[in-house]
Computed example of a mutant assay.
Amino acid sequence: MLPLERQKKIIELLKFKKVMKIKELLTELDISIDTLRRDLNILTKQGKIEKIYGGVKLAESPLAESSMDKRLISHIEEKNSIAQTCSEYIQDGDCIYLDSGSTTLQIAKYIKNKRKLTVITNSVPVVLELMNSNLDLIMIGGKVRKEEQSVVTYDYLFNFNQLNIQKAFICASGITFEKGISDYHIEEAITRKNIISLSSEIYVAADSTKFGKDVTVGITPLEKVDYIVTDQHIHETFITAFKDTSTKLIVANS
């Protein structure tokens, strides 16, 4: 079997089994360990697979948005610290917007005891989290994105102009100085653009892995964002660079 054929076979096996041990691959392909290592090194350099302890798995595409279920357990400590810090900027009597996303869902857990707080959201999990609280809840109307557990709105279904939002807490999949805030899904981006245009203060809640990434759809340039709240793992170069911008970078405590 030619090297390209073996490598194609490895990808096909991983698509079926998701994760495979080295011993399994040796048996399936009937090749030496040195030959397998060469093939795996090539596929790893091509970004097609990832090596894990004792085996390999298919690599996730950097251009694809991971599912909400995966994001809910990914970087959870960092997201909790970001959420707690965000909650400190929310006062009794505020009218706020909580975006759909795993980090903003954590914010909902910290604001249940606020008084006379109005929460506007497009996130089904946020609504469920706050359902039994004393907060006033407003959910925007529109099309349900099942994979994101969110509602992406249309102007003819929801009148944005009637909203008076003091503080909007927005999620992002990418943050760069050149392109600003970006996301994977165009309908989510449109909803966020509308909310940003109507809100007095814009907070972006994003863990440190989002910095330096520019993904599919631009949401807003950096100068339109008042605050970015992130975790303590953000690289020092970003902290220094933000000192020359109008956007305040807030680093949450661990």
Rank of each mutant, 00 (worst) to 15 (best):
R145L: 15
I190G: 11
I107G: 12
R6H: 01
G55S: 08
H235P: 11
L105Q: 10
D214H: 01
F16E: 15
V124R: 05
E5G: 00
Q162C: 08
A168M: 09
Q46R: 03
S87R: 00
I175L: 05
E129W: 08
S87H: 03
V152H: 10
V126P: 00
I234K: 07
I22L: 15
M68K: 02
S173G: 13
V19N: 08
I181N: 00
H233M: 15
K193V: 15
S100W: 10
N159R: 15
N113W: 02
E60M: 02
L157M: 13
I96F: 12
V229C: 08
L157H: 10
L25M: 15
H75S: 07
G212N: 01
I165F: 10
S133N: 07
T35F: 01
K51P: 09
H185M: 09
N113Y: 00
E178I: 15
Y227R: 00
F160S: 11
S87M: 04
S66Y: 05
K143A: 15
K15T: 03
N161K: 12
K179V: 09
I82R: 00
V127Y: 08
E201V: 15
F169Q: 05
I82M: 04
Y110C: 12
K8A: 15
E24T: 09
E223G: 03
A189S: 02
V19Y: 05
E24D: 11
Y184H: 03
K146R: 11
E129T: 02
I219P: 10
I202D: 13
L222P: 04
S61A: 06
S100T: 13
G93P: 05
D69T: 12
E5W: 04
N253Q: 12
D207V: 14
K243D: 13
A205R: 07
K15R: 12
K48P: 06
F158I: 01
D214L: 01
C95G: 11
V152P: 10
E65C: 14
A83Y: 02
E28V: 01
V204Q: 15
G218W: 06
T121S: 11
V152K: 05
S100N: 11
I22Y: 13
A83P: 03
G101N: 07
A241Q: 15
G93L: 07
A252Y: 04
A83W: 01
R6M: 04
T209Q: 05
T191V: 09
I52K: 02
V152G: 09
H233F: 13
E12T: 10
N161D: 15
F160Q: 14
E178F: 11
A108W: 02
I107Y: 13
G101I: 06
I202C: 11
L72N: 10
K18C: 11
G141I: 05
E50N: 10
D207K: 12
Y97S: 13
V229S: 05
K70H: 11
A205Y: 06
S254N: 11
R37H: 12
T103V: 14
A189G: 00
E236N: 12
